[in-house]
Write a protein that binds this DNA or RNA. Sequence first.
RNA 1: GGGACUAUAGCUCAGCUGGUUAGAGUGCUACGUUGACAUCGUAGAGGUCGAUGGUUCGAUUCCAUUUAGUCCCACCA
Length: 871
Amino acid sequence: MEKTYNSKECEQRIYKNWVEKGYFHEEPDKSREPFCIVIPPPNITGQLHMGHALDNTMQDILIRFKRMQGFCTLWLPGTDHASIATEVKILEQLAKEGITKDDLTREEFLDKAWEWYKLYGGRIVEQLKRLGSSCDWQRERFTMDEGCSKAVREVFVKLYDKGLIYQGDRIINWCPDCRTALSDAEVEYEEKASHLWHLEYPLTDGSGYIVVATTRPETMLGDTAVAVNPEDDRYKGMVGKTVMLPLMDREIPIIADSYVEMEFGTGAVKITPAHDPNDYLMAERHDIATINIMNEDGTLNSNAGKYAKLPAAEARRKIVEDLKAIDKLVKTEDYTHKVGTCYRCSTTVEPLISKQWFVNMQPLAEPAIKAVEDSDVEFVPERFSKIYFNWMNNIKDWCISRQLWWGHRIPVWYCNDCGHIMVKKDDPSTCDKCSSKNIRQDEDVLDTWFSSALWPFSTLGWPEDTAELEYFYPTNVLVTGYDIIFFWVARMIFSGLEHMGEKPFSHVLIHGLVRDAQGRKMSKSLGNGIDPIDVIEEFGADALRFSVTSNSAPGNDMRFNESKIEAARNFANKIWNAARFVHMNIDGQKPEKINIAETDAADKWILSQLNGVIKEATRNLETFELGLALQKVYDFIWSEFCDWYIELSKAKLYEGTESQKKNTTAVLYHVLIESLKLLHPFMPFVTEEIYQNLEGSDQSIMIDKWPLYDDKMDFEEAAKMELVKDIIHKIRNIRAQMDVPANRRTTIYISPKEGVDLTDSTDYIRRLASGEKVELLQKDSEDSSMVSIVSDAGNIYLPLNELIDFEKEKARVQGEIELTKSEIARAEGMLKNEKFVAKAPENVVQKERDNLANNREKLTQLESSLEKLEN
RNA sequence: GGGACUAUAGCUCAGCUGGUUAGAGUGCUACGUUGACAUCGUAGAGGUCGAUGGUUCGAUUCCAUUUAGUCCCACCA
């Protein structure tokens, strides 16, 4: 084995081997329990980023863990066509060649899109492989493949037939740049510095005027009313009158509606029903006309009179200027407010009325809420269910049609002759009603999330009755970031319930965002993103995986920095070297099983510790506490196995009998292999490389069995080892304090307390505490030339007379006495408290009693040490 | 306007259902090429667990209030 672990050399070779052996693939096996995760399909536009690294590492940890536990596992991978995101990207690319969407036919554009898919769709999949993801690539899916497309049509037709999908003219969010409608979830609100313009509208009866305040003066062209609060005394006389809309010379009414806030602005609001959702609702209440003034590209239309064809922003400038010229602009205030923007291109969205397809959400939301209320679906951490409820309880109908080309085309056909509408799973060639061949399909495609919502069952074969669907559905865990709960998780839940009659998964494991070292979101525009592939190249996939899963709490954001990756890489190297040590001591032969009868306290200690970490790490993994599980395995390997057991083992390896040596090797080997298994879900590559090196075969650790907790492996003798460790630690401490050179070895005298038998541990103490030899005394030493140390195992004496600085040593002992006294006082105080003794659990009280007794004894010893020093 | 989260060592963060002297990584100090590892070892310094009040025998942990920060949702033009 090399001196350092070389991730670059082995990762791709190992991964290839796993794939070739088919370890990621399982067929439904009724004799075992299934465990299934469907991947959140990354966009085909995407490149792996830190969020993916985190998300997929978590899934891989769970899958590998369950696979080793013996479950029939399936991690189902795939990609998302990402309708709008991909279309935006393709258009950007075409723009570089000077091509616009208008230059292409729909078919030509789709050809380009499929080319894109072939070129880039596989890129992120390859990157997922670099991470070590054990996805079943034989079952890889795409949201626009044949099966998923079939599922989409099935669902559309079913919901339409149930009356849950309808078409209507309603106010929607329009992105003038993408030239499509968006759902509410696809609008992001950004604080923007702007103005509040106060405009004067003269009353038609000449009795005065009313001043309205607006953040969007250009929409005044579409005003059809002015509203005030019915309680507002300032305007009481005006309600029912009409005003003359400046620039347009249109007479519009003043109405009263309690929606209007008297305190805001002037207390009078201009009403533009076609371009403001609230105004739209008000117009419905008061039966007021709507005037659409905007084109699909964000320019004004012919209803805008002389401002027609101007882009909205330009129209705004012009209108403000013109109003000023006719003295109708009363004042302009600075004002910051939230402006809706497109989540894909950040263009300001314009609310407008348009004919779109909608899903009636209320009937679908109800069972979806209940499923989470009843814990049929559980969010982990639990608090995210509140976010889910909040959204679901206030849900509005979902606008699902998009004026795009890339995506699932809406399965609706119109007859050009008789106007008949057909909603069909299969493309019709004639009109059902008049048999005309002159039919056309709806031009729009579906929201990309419409197909993602079906992912947990469409990928398993639905609407066909497949064995996979039967066996793996409902899936077990869905792992995703909190930013995607509305878009995706919520929609999968109601879709699963509606179409499968059963939840899509039982647990939703939510994680936070990966941020940069300063805590900022990683983004392209900031240029602060870290490319996971670069990290893998430099530090290895295991180091990357370790650093995104360690030291973070569930659902919380985490910061990512280089020192964290280095620490992770160092850990991989640490295990590597521990393995190297074991490797060079087994003489190329796999040791036989451990003979428990021949194990000593050190062996029993490490076996007990191992048993403990098996128990806890397993429990943590089962409750999705991945970070805690990893922390425990890490601590065990580094702080217990490497720091202590390997060092202890050298005593027997180098100085012991043949049988001791043999058995120690067996323990080393066993503990290492079991540790590797515990670590494997987190760091699959280094564990596999070591495992195969040690076993001397190409048998894989990933299909080996997960370690089981065994209460027979909790040994009482382990406690003695803690005493020995304490002795060693205290001696090292004193030596360091007294600047004893490392190569200076002394005899170590110990007078063990009653009941403490150290006869089999003297070699350990000698080796690890730089002793010349260790002598066990029958009683306490009276020799005042020795440094004495009080430990839980008994008193320790070091003949260091020429090195002892008596004043310094007195101060040290004095300090310890103070500490011990305060500890005694604390314990006494607690035990004097009758309520504590009466109410606290017995073991806690007993602990306190033992503690008090120990410290009293310790104090006596310390005081006699001090006395000796003073003589 | 509603809601969630965060506040613990210089820095980045763990800390499960309340129980001795609160942990890790990194940084810092001193020493160290001891037969796995300098991507390392040994020893050490460093924290009134944001503040106040309450519940409790006992609070970093539970409750309330409060301060500071982050985020989400919402129809204030």
